[in-house]
Structure formats: structure tokens, C-alpha cells
Amino acid sequence: MSDAHDTGPVVNAIAPAPPIGFALVGWFVQNQRPLPWRRHYDPYAVWISEVMLQQTQMSKVLPYYERWMARFPTVQAVAKASLEELLRAWEGLGYYGRVRQLQKAAQEIVTLYGGNIPWEEEALRRLPGIGPYTAAAVASLAFGRDVPVLDGNAQRVSARLLDWPKPVKDAESQRILRQVLEEWMPSGRAREFNQAVMELGSLICKPKKPRCTQCPVRAWCRAYAADTVAHRPVAPRRPLMQAITVAVGVLCDNGKVFIQKRPPQGLMAGLWEFPGGKAHEGETPEETLHRELAEELGVTVTITGKITEIRHAITRYRLHLHAFRCVLNPPDQPLELRSAVQGLWVPLEGLDQYAFPSANRRLIRMLQTRQGTTP
């Protein structure tokens, strides 16, 4: 193993790489998981799986994928569906901008390509929401194009094999890692090779407690030889999580609750929510709710009780949500939509038809469980 670590500069060590590529392909053929999109490598199925897997764990994606494919089995189905339907099917996966871009891309595929997903990487990258990673994944997995896929797993595997000492997100690192993957890839085996690298990162070369003794390419791993596996890849410093306190109101009237739809741009765009918002410094949650409902809807309310508190993490934020039951006071005030684009009064059992952020959905489940269908 010491020879593998002492072969000179990293970028000059990629010439003899084919043994790594063939070892990875052979391992994958014998050990691949029976994932649903691997049955036929249909381009649409591969595309949906790759979009869902961005920043989401495989175990969470699988049930969403199966439900999505049953409801939207073709590109045309996505193109024709309402955004509300798509968001509801996606609810819980997060990063909802992916859904809007997915539909825009589907509509372009129908208009420009007759519903057939293009096989060229550059054509794929011109579609909305498809960046270098997704384009390479679809081109190689669905169409067998010899292009490397550099996802998080591939970054970790290649950085460890090279004992790469720089942050993997840097432009230079991205270029070098993509270059070595391309060198290691056996010609005509891009589908197996790219999945082998990603599968290895998911099952063996894990971020923590990697199973190095089970690795099929350990003999070529410089980080293993140098005992630096725990320090590779070098990651950029993570931004600090920001704590946010939020108060929302379950505004009740005649057996229904009020929900409003967020604007089509910004965080959680197009999703439905209970009215409310972020607390100002020094405010109690109750004061926050009164202020927010006055600002958002132009109404005054009486808080009739606290329902629950929910803690939830989203992107860079740690959310502490306080939920209150409330009623209009006086009761006949008109609601003015000052920040939302639509508002509805809906019975509890009807809330399942609308797409909500995860914290709001948890609140809905709690309300339905505790009180049946009576607000």
C-alpha cells in the first residue's frame, strides 16, 4: 500500500487508473442494490430519482419515488399536472424549488423534444433546474454516455483515493476530482462506473466509520495508506445554524381553519401555511402572533389556547414554532391578504389536499389526531 501513496503528485497519478475503474465496476455488478430506477434505466425514471436524491437520503427518497412514479408515470404527466398536485406529492422532501424547475423542464421536453428526454449532456444542461451533476447522471446512467458524475459520494470517494488535501467544493478540487473520475472510468461502462462510485460512498466509504476493510479499491487508496481517511474529504466550514422563533395561528371559524398560500418566489414558495411569522427581539410568542396577524391579514384576534410547540430544522435555520388556536375579535372582520397570494377557509379533513411545509404538516397531523375533524 505504501507504493500507492508514494507515486508522486496527485494529478500525475491518474494514468494507471483503469484497474481502479474495473475493480469498481466489478464490485458494483456483484453488490448493487435493487433500486427501482435500475430496473430499466428509463431516462424519466433516472431523472426523477436524481432530482429527489439531491440533498436527501436514499431511505427517505424511495417511498416518495414510488408514489411519484405511480401518480406521474411520464414526462407528459408532470408537464400537464397542476403545481399544487406536484407540490403535494413532493411535500416532506423539502427544497421545493426543485418541483417548479422539474415541471418547467418537463414542459420544455414536451415542447422541444416531443416528450423524449435528450441524451446529450449539453442539451440536458439547458433545461430548467438541470445542472452539471444531474445532466451527467442522466446522460451516463440512462444513455451510457462516458461522462463522470461528481455528487457528494463521488467527491468523498475520489478525495480519499487521492488523499486530496484541499476543500472538495473549491473550483480546483472539482476540476481535479472530475478529471480523475473520467480517467478511471472504463470506456463504455459509465453507467456501472458512476453508480459504483456513488454506491461505494453510500455503503462502504461513508462519511463516518467507513468500512475500509470491505473496500474493493483499498489497495489504491492513498488516504488509507496515509491513515488520513477520517480527515478526507476536506470540507468547507459550515455556516452557523440560526435559531428562529415563529408563532402561527390556527384561526377557527364555523368548523373551518384559515390557510394562506405563500408567494411563488422565495423560501417555501407556493406552499400553504397557517398565518403567522417570526418573533421580534423581546416579543413573547403571543405578542408575535397578534402583530403578525395584524400585519398579514389586517385583523385582531383572541387567542383561545396554545396547541403545541414544534422544533424543526430547515436549511440553515433551527425553527421553534409556537402554535395557538385563535378566533377573530370582533368576529366579522374581513381578511386582507397583504403578504400571501391566496387564502381559504378549510375543514381540518380538507387540509390533506394542500401542500404545506413540514412543520405545518406536523401541526395538522396533531390537530387531526387530537380533535378528529373539529377545529
Rank of each mutant, 00 (worst) to 15 (best):
A196S: 13
L86S: 03
E108T: 11
V99G: 03
V147G: 03
R191D: 10
D170Q: 13
V78D: 01
A154Y: 07
G129N: 08
T111L: 14
L127T: 05
P165C: 12
N194M: 11
P118D: 01
A89G: 02
V78Y: 06
E192N: 10
G131C: 08
F143N: 10
A196Y: 06
S158K: 01
F193G: 08
N194L: 08
K169T: 15
Y96M: 05
G92A: 11
P165A: 10
G129A: 07
E199S: 06
L161V: 13
G97F: 10
E84A: 15
S158L: 14
R125Y: 00
Q103I: 06
A106N: 08
L141G: 03
M69N: 06
L150F: 04
V180L: 03
S202H: 12
V110W: 05
I117W: 05
V147Y: 08
G114Q: 01
V78W: 02
K104P: 02
R67A: 15
A106T: 03
E192C: 08
V78R: 05
L141Q: 03
Q179N: 03
L162C: 15
A139L: 08
R88T: 12
E122V: 07
R67F: 00
T111C: 11
S82P: 00
Q101S: 12
V110D: 07
L86A: 01
N153M: 08
G144H: 10
S173W: 06
D163W: 02
E122Q: 13
D146L: 07
P167I: 11
M198A: 09
L141W: 02
M185I: 07
N194F: 09
Q174K: 15
W68M: 04
G144E: 12
S158I: 13
R126W: 01
G92Y: 06
V147R: 02
K166S: 13
V149K: 04
P73K: 08
Q101Y: 12
A79R: 08
A77E: 01
R126E: 13
E85W: 06
D146G: 03
E84V: 04
M198D: 01
L87V: 01
L177P: 10
V157L: 02
Q76G: 14
K169S: 14
E84D: 15
A196F: 05
M198H: 02
K166L: 15
T111I: 00
R189L: 14
A123R: 13
A81W: 09
S140E: 05
K166E: 15
W119R: 15
S82E: 14
A190G: 04
R88A: 09
G129L: 06
F143R: 07
R125E: 14
M198E: 04
R125Q: 15
V197F: 04
V110M: 14
A135V: 03
Q107F: 10
L87G: 03
Q103D: 00
S202A: 15
L86C: 05
R145V: 15
P165T: 10
R175T: 14
S140Q: 08
R191F: 06
